[in-house]
Amino acid sequence: MSKKALLEQPATVPAAADGKARPARRAPQNLWFTVGPFAVFLALFALVAVLRPAFLTGGGMAILAVQAATILLVALGQAMVLHVGSIDLSNAAIVIFAAIVLAQTLGPIGPAAPVVTLAVVTLIGAVNGFLVAFGQIPSFALTLGTLGILQAASLVISNATTVYATANGQLLAPLFGTAFAGLPLAFWVGVLMAVGLWAFLRFTRAGEGMTAVGLNETGALFSGLRTRWFKVMAFALSGLLAGVAGILVIAQAGAASSFGLGSDLLLPGIAAAIVGGTAITGGITNPVNIVFGALTVALVPIGAAAVGVTPQAQSLVYGLVIIAAVALTMGRGHTEVVK
C-alpha cells in the first residue's frame, strides 16, 4: 500500500513534545511566576540600598524609573511579539525612527506630530507582522532585515545628523517634568500600558486568541481563529509601543540621531521582557511583571556604578546578573524543551 501514500503528514507537526510536559509542582511554580520578577527586583534594589544607603535617600527610585521608562515600553512591545511566538529585532530601530520623525514634525504640526508618528510606526510594525504572517518569513530573519532598512531610513531622513525638536517641545515636557508619587509621568505611562495590556490579554477575545497562537498556533488555526491577524496585531503593538518610547526619547533629550539615545534598546528590551517572566516560546506573558523586569534591567548598571564596581568590570556584572535574574524569573514555557 505504500505505492501511493497520498496522505501528507501535516508538515508542521512537531513529532513529539506535546502533552508530554508534565508540569508537576504547579502551585509553587505559579506563585513564583507571579511574584518572581518583583522579588528579584526587590532583592537587587535592597542589595544596592544596603551597600549604598545614599541611593535610596538620593531619589534612586526616581532615577531608576526614568531609565526604566523607555526600556519598559520597548520590552512590552517585545513581549507582545514573543507572546505570539515570534521575535522583533527591529523595535529599537523603530524607536529611533519614531524619535527622528517626531523631532522633524513637532515644529511644523505641533500636537498632531505625536499622533502622526505613532500612526507611522504602528504601520511599520504592522508591515513587519504582515510579512511574517502572510509572507511566512521567520520573524528573526525578517526583523533582522527590517532592522537594517529602518537604520538606513533613519540616517536618510535625519541626513545622518542630529535632529532637534526645536518648537513645541513644551508639549512633551510634562512626561519627565511632572512627577506622580515621586516617579516621572513617563514611567507611569509605561505602567499604564502594562496594565492595559494585561487586561487586554486577560479579558478580551483577541488577547486570548493571541495567547492561543503563542501556545499552539496550529490548534488556534484549526479553531478558525484569525491567527495571522493576531500576529499582525502583535507586531503593530510592538511598533506602537516603540513609537511611544520614541516620544519619550524626544521628551527626555529634545533631539534624536540614528545612533544616539534609544538606539541600543533592543537587547535591554528583550532582557527586560524575559526577566519579567515572559516565555520566549510564546503564550506566557504577564505585562505587569515586565514593569519589574524593566526596573531590574535598568537597575543593574546604575546599581553596579552606585555600589562602586570598577567601570571596567561593569559589563561583566551586567551579563552575570541578567543571566541569574532570567534563570530565576523566566516563564518556563509549555514544553520542557528549551532552545
Binding site: 495567547t211 492561543a212 496550529t218 490548534g219 506566557i284
Partner: peptide
Amino acid sequence: PSERKVEGMVGGLSAAENLTLV
C-alpha cells in the same frame, strides 16, 4: 482533527478556554 494535541486544541489554555475558543 486526528492530530488532536497539535491541531485540535491548545494544550496550554484551560479546558474552559478551549471550550469557548471557537
